[in-house]
Design a protein around this nucleic acid. Structure first.
Lengths: 127, 127
DNA sequence: TTTAACGTTGACGTTAACGTAAACCCGAAT
DNA sequence: ATTCGGGTTTACGTTAACGTCAACGTTAAA
């Protein structure tokens, strides 16, 4: 048998690992994104919780709001196998990808303008 | 001669054209992004002002903050010809482009995961 | 036993980018 | 004379995503 991978985490374990504050993690719970098990008062996070957190943070990097990330996480959930939810998820992702493409196009446009500006600038500087 | 292109705009002219509110335009002025001429109380916008506004909105789509857009606009300005400023502008743009690339990579990663999820889902549905 | 490290729950503060509303002025049309 | 469609300022409200205390409990170590 291989080593059993650690199954639970404390709040600051996760905070350290993902370089966020415990306040942030509690906030995600307030927002309905996490719902860790409790041992008395204290929060105990499972591997599943950790994965959720990972998804939230990736969502952030991708420009999703917390609400959107919550939706996405719910779709990934055990209840899953639901075809309509999966489609909703896919379309949300596609939508975001198109936004990004649009941004890329605009950036390229801006680049061209910049290149021209640079050229004009250099031209004006040579005698 | 060809028709002379209109030289001035009222605040709501611009609001209509760019589909934003006049409040927004005034806010950009408060933030130091615009500084239209005045005719008594009223703001009179020149073509140059219009271009600035265009830049601001493009900046927004590209994910720049207003402060960043203000910097960019200042660099485009008449005082221009300054090489250091131009370089600063270019590096700001490059930085943003790298961020976008990063996002694209993450999106692609997410796509792969989604494709797999979809596959698993479909597999589970066929008898 | 007291200090330290870690956890908890409020609850208020913060920033960006506007929205909303009140109260006003002004010129043209009715 | 008043109404209407613009424009103006001032000022408070809003949302998201946390930060920043304060005040407290728990366990382990010195």
């Amino acid at each position: 048998m291989t080593a059993v991978t650690q199954t639970t985490y404390t709040i600051s374990d996760l905070a350290r690992e993902f370089d966020i504050t415990t306040r942030t993690i509690r906030f995600y719970e307030e927002a309905g994104l996490l719902d860790p098990h409790r041992e008395g008062q204290q929060r105990i996070y499972s591997d599943a919780d950790r994965v959720k957190l990972k998804l939230i943070l990736r969502g952030k990097r991708l420009g999703f709001s917390l609400a959107e990330s919550r939706d996405i996480i719910e779709m990934y959930d055990p209840s899953s196998g639901n075809e309509r939810q999966l489609n909703a998820l896919l379309s949300k992702i596609r939508e975001r990808r198109e936004q990004l493409n649009e941004q890329m196009r605009e950036l390229q446009l801006m680049q061209v303008e910049l290149d021209e500006a640079e050229k004009r600038c250099l031209d004006a500087m040579t005698p």
